[in-house]
Design a protein around this nucleic acid. Structure first.
Lengths: 311, 311
DNA sequence: AATTCCTCATTGTCTATGACAATTTTGGCT
DNA sequence: AGCCAAAATTGTCATAGACAATGAGGAATT
């Protein structure tokens, strides 16, 4: 276990902060303060990378860099811990959630799976998603933001939910009057859970769903929309994404799609983002999905009466 | 559908070519030749972005930029088409593969699933992976590289295989004499199929597998390895990755892990990469997995006899 | 004839600093 | 309080030169 010094590219990879940002912070805030190698290239000590990762987490929860970049690590950790208390709106079932967290931290994947499968069996796909997965998701996300769990533990959780949802979604039959929805995330967004939850909600209401997986380039989303004759494109955005990037991506997508094809943008990001992108329907909560589907059907029926009464 | 001009950031997102690379190509090869907006910032016409995407594909199959960046698009497309013939080593079952491709291009996800499920039922998990999925995967990858299918169609295929493998892997029990393997990909690598195939091969031989999903940051891989008391870290690398990045990432990982923990790096990338990373075991084919497991067990038995006969 | 080694060309990434647009915050004014 | 303008904040883009790591081609050796 050597000194573990990292290049600027490695820091970008590990923290998600761009090279430009890292250099400009050094210039403006006096942090980080990398050493230099023989070529005059930046070399970051491990503890500075760790601090950068903490900063990144705090920024994801809305804090601006000037307030934190120059602060000592101990203060940042304290702030991280206090975030949990602020974010957490105990939803009644909070105790059970703490139990899930314990199982997760013990890395008992099988036990976690069984507990969740029990709930799925009891409530069915829709109830499972709305009453369990959605709030539990928020809870797990908050636990991560507060430093209570590691990202690989979050992955472990995601994995179990994913398997469960995939299994239960296979049996549902689509309804011809409902839209064909293509689901994916924008490049840079790795969280698949949002898509899966949306897919569950859409499928139980009879919509025909096609998931492209995560991180589909914009031109490919457009091609997929045409190939599948999609009525709606669903994009899931987690709070880990930069709002600017998402806005730019959605505007780009909107510009390249026929306006008959709707774009629905859901995910926890939209709690933070105030103004939406023109021509894109923001879905703050999963409960917006049924009403959006109703609205779509209404509009479609109306349009058919108007323009094409026989078809 | 406006003129669709894109910023350099959007081009980076859509092509995977870094901003630095885009600027330096312009300087060196005279392509791309973006317009400039009011601020003097690059604005790329749509057709140039399309050409860049073709170039990217050709580079992923090993061609160097100086040979192709300045060429006209028509030549590049011809080259792309000829790649398929060159790459494709008909593995006997070639006709069936073409049929799969047809189903895929018709977007008949259910039919595709049924065909694959039939093979899984007939051959069991291991045979299915070795005889069907592995070669089919190569074939689908080649079809993508040759421009015969779109990336979202590849995703559709991946999705079906993923569901099937997940289902059949759930029933297998690990063997206590076999290593605990943590599986993931490096940041930037989005292809999960490699992990799934590795997991299938490992699990049928009794190894205890934990998948972290894709794109785990190096520090998190290290933490996960410790938390799960992993014996082996398995990293899957597709040919879409830049070899440099992978080498750097693996060297970084090796430096931060105790040397008792082995690193096995598999995936189609290693057909192209000649020299491996020190301390990392390259796995060219899935068939290397059983022998690697045997070797691991041998070594472990030997070590226990030497140092710790009672435990 | 095959293999190893050496050299040259290729290529991506890094450096530095200035500029600016987009957003958020602040302060003053109804 | 509520709202608008001014100011501060912040990320990204531009420029051009430098260099290390890789690949390719040829020469020398086994």
């Amino acid at each position: 276990m050597a000194k573990s010094l990292t290049s600027i590219a490695a820091v970008e990879r590990d923290t998600g902060l761009s090279k430009d940002t890292l250099r400009v912070w050094e210039r403006r805030y006096g942090f980080p303060t990398p050493l230099r190698d023989g070529n005059g290239e930046r070399v970051y000590p491990r503890d500075q990378v760790e601090k950068l990762r903490v900063i990144r987490r705090l920024m994801d929860s809305g804090i601006r860099p000037s307030k934190i970049v120059a602060e000592p690590l101990s203060k940042l950790n304290a702030q991280l811990a206090s975030r949990l208390v602020a974010d957490q709106q105990p939803p009644g079932e909070c105790l059970a959630f703490e139990a899930v967290l314990r199982v997760l931290k013990a890395h008992q994947a099988t036990k976690l799976y069984q507990q969740l499968a029990h709930e799925l069996g009891r409530r069915g796909p829709k109830g499972f998603v709305l009453d369990i997965v959605a709030p539990l998701n928020t809870f797990i996300g908050a636990a991560w933001a507060a430093g209570r769990i590691e990202i690989f533990e979050e992955h472990l959780y995601t994995e179990q939910v994913r398997i469960l949802l995939r299994q239960s979604l296979g049996t549902l039959m689509p309804d011809a009057r409902m839209p064909c929805v293509v689901l994916t995330t924008l490049p840079g967004e790795q969280h698949e859970l949002g898509i899966l939850m949306a897919q569950a909600c859409l499928a139980v209401d009879g919509a025909h769903c096609i998931s492209l997986g995560v991180q589909t380039p914009i031109p490919d989303i457009v091609k997929a929309a045409h190939a599948h004759h999609a009525d709606v494109i669903g994009i899931s955005c987690s709070e880990a994404m930069r709002i600017n990037r998402v806005r730019e991506g959605l505007a780009d997508l909107r510009m390249n799609l026929e306006c008959e094809i709707e774009i629905w943008a859901g995910g926890s990001l939209w709690r933070r983002a105030k103004n939406a992108v023109p021509g894109v329907k923001p879905m703050v909560s999963l409960t917006d999905i049924p009403s959006a589907l109703d609205a779509w059907r209404e509009k479609r029926v109306f349009r058919e009466h108007q323009g094409n009464p026989s078809g």
